[in-house]
Write a protein that binds this DNA or RNA. Structure first.
Lengths: 244, 244
DNA sequence: TATAGTTGTCTATTGATATAGACAAGTATA
DNA sequence: TATACTTGTCTATATCAATAGACAACTATA
């Protein structure tokens, strides 16, 4: 039995109480804390040490998001399930990693462009300074829900027209195979967390102030040559990263 | 030249404009957008499409955090701090991991207690249901700055008095050696991110609304027996996790 | 030493946030 | 059907957030 943590809300910190409580409830749902139905509004008000109307504000926001469904006289019910556990390892692949947790997984190409590589990109892909790179902006979905938003870089000399291959299959793994990369491995992953930027909020269908987990990584082929340099943002309320 | 993105702030979303702007400025600094000095308040107000006083609120918060330093008549300057890269792997150790990045690393014991293990703890440590566990609350510091806040569980039958060993050395590695555990390995790590709780804000000296990276892991000895089950919160503005 | 440019402080007004209480409307159950 | 419990709606009040304008205090430099 949890000892009813009271007054854990911070006031006058620039984040409205109803927003903080909405964030807490969403996170608690992701952690499986509430089975199917939310406690009554008065109980939640007691738990968070606020007025019932403030809790109602939080619930209204989550109903708007589609996380909750309120029924007058009956209660407030949860529309969603637990977080995805996304495995990070030497053989990390989006579709493989979630195959036991979601029926449909696919990537969607938002846009692509050829650019001059900056310092970190050219170093990661082992290209000469000032080389051109192919940049892909993608969203990955699981069961129709946007899970991650990636910015990836490829060497256009080796992977000319890669954007079409990716757009067709919705999978980096499949697209790489079309270019003769039978297998690939993750060399390293850097993980950080921050508030989502406005553009990611829209693509990941998040509410303002949401947190994203950011992974920066390089994938290499069987010869150890870098094939993909990528920065991926995961919705922290929907995904946790599992390092095996 | 960036085309002065105006009016990208969301209003009446439960997050005060000054807080959103503070988050944006902090992120822009991290991305190296401002060299050394922030643009004047009026220019920032123009850029974000808000009143000068609103920008001042954001700057005041960042000064409080130690990110900025304002000097009357001169301008507002950036206090440089780079993030620690904390390596996560099979041989993850706090002091080892930061030894090239900080001169002094140590753990501080905040409190300890004997409790009845809950379901996840007893499973992680391979204990019978309802067994007693030793719980340690600790803070780890690097160069005097609190970097992480951990809640760890040990089997009190095997590690009787472990809290004293830890308090003496400030190191789990050293304390485990006193109990004959010459080496240990990390079996798995689960990583998530959320807003910091009030108690962690104080211990990690964070500002309200700050983000923490949460790692949940089990360490096992050379025989594969679990010795430590732990949940650690890292200040996301100060630390990124590196998976090799 | 002027002057322009910067941050700091004050007053005032409007809208959003949070609290409080009362009661209506709907649901489940004894 | 009566009762307890739940969500929905209304009024009212106090505090915080955001805008607006004016001017003081301080710094760099022409």
């Amino acid at each position: 039995m949890t000892p009813a943590p009271k007054n854990l809300m911070e006031r006058r910190n620039g984040i409205a109480l109803w927003r903080q409580i909405a964030d807490q409830i969403r996170f608690a749902i992701g952690a499986g804390e509430f089975a199917e139905r939310l406690p009554p509004e008065l109980a939640l008000a007691e738990r968070y040490g606020v007025n019932r109307h403030t809790v109602r504000g939080a619930i209204a926001a989550l109903v708007q998001e589609g996380v909750l469904r309120a029924e007058q006289g009956r209660g407030t019910f949860i529309e969603e399930r637990k977080r995805f556990a996304y495995p990070i390892g030497t053989r990390t692949r989006f579709s493989e990693g979630l195959k036991d947790q979601a029926r449909d997984r696919r990537g969607i190409l938002l846009s692509h462009s050829i650019e001059i590589a900056d310092a970190s990109t050219s170093e990661a892909l082992n290209l000469a300074r000032g080389s051109a790179v192919l940049r892909l902006e993608t969203v990955s979905e699981a069961d129709g829900r946007p899970v991650s938003r990636a910015t990836s870089y490829f060497d256009p000399a080796r992977f000319n027209g890669f954007e079409h291959a990716y757009a067709r299959s919705g999978s980096v793994t499949t697209a790489l195979q079309e270019y003769g990369v039978k297998d690939y491995f993750r060399r390293s992953t850097l993980i950080s967390a921050r508030h989502a930027q406005a553009s990611d909020l829209a693509d990941l269908k998040l509410s303002p102030g949401a947190i994203v987990l950011v992974t920066i990584y390089v994938n290499v082929d069987q010869q150890g040559l870098p094939v993909q340099y990528s920065q991926t943002r995961f919705a922290a309320d929907l995904v946790e990263l599992s390092v095996a």
